[in-house]
């Protein structure tokens, strides 16, 4: 098999995941895109391992390790997303601006399309009291 096929497929999958990480707003969709990027790396590792016929089979061993680390990463990531959701009632990463340094970045992007039941505790928790209340919510 031509080596360019798996290499090109891996490059395209990686860039698809890159687009997803940059363009998505929901934190769980960002995690899905990260999974796509990790899988592109895995495909590269397997293809080059089969091509080089390494005696230690480093590529396949590293692929297995990457899969295990990705499973751990998705568990920790989802736990963090759920903790943020409990505090903010939102998994919108555009609203997580606690570490922003400028005052303009502190202003939340308001989008009226949100559902009202998800909007009410979120505004109560983040919008009016500003930085002190947000810091308390994440402490």
């Amino acid at each position: 098999m031509h080596l360019a096929y798996p290499a090109v497929l891996a490059a395209l999958l990686f860039c698809t995941g890159l687009y997803g990480v940059l363009a998505r707003r929901n934190a769980i969709l960002v995690l899905m895109s990260v999974e796509l990027m990790l899988n592109a790396v895995n495909l590269n590792l397997v293809a080059f391992d089969v091509w080089l016929r390494d005696a230690l089979h480093s590529g396949q061993a590293l692929t297995l390790f990457t899969i295990a680390i990705a499973a751990a990463e998705i568990g920790i990531g989802l736990a963090i997303v759920l903790a943020v959701y409990r505090n903010r009632a939102s998994s919108d990463i555009d609203r997580l601006r606690d570490t922003a340094e400028t005052d303009e970045a502190e202003e939340l992007p308001d989008d009226p399309d949100d559902e009202s039941d998800a909007e009410a505790p979120e505004d109560q928790a983040t919008a009016p009291a500003g930085k002190a209340k947000k810091a308390e919510a994440t402490a």
């Binding site: 090109v8 490059a11 395209l12 990686f14 860039c15 698809t16 890159l18 687009y19 940059l22 363009a23 998505r24 707003r25 929901n26 969709l29 919108d92 555009d94 992007p109 989008d111 399309d113 949100d114």
Partner: peptide, 22 residues
Amino acid sequence: DADSENRWTALAVAVAAAGTLV
């Protein structure tokens, strides 16, 4: 609101990266 406002920037970055890598 599944996509954020910087969708077109992300698309440009992804297309540029894909072209370079391929």
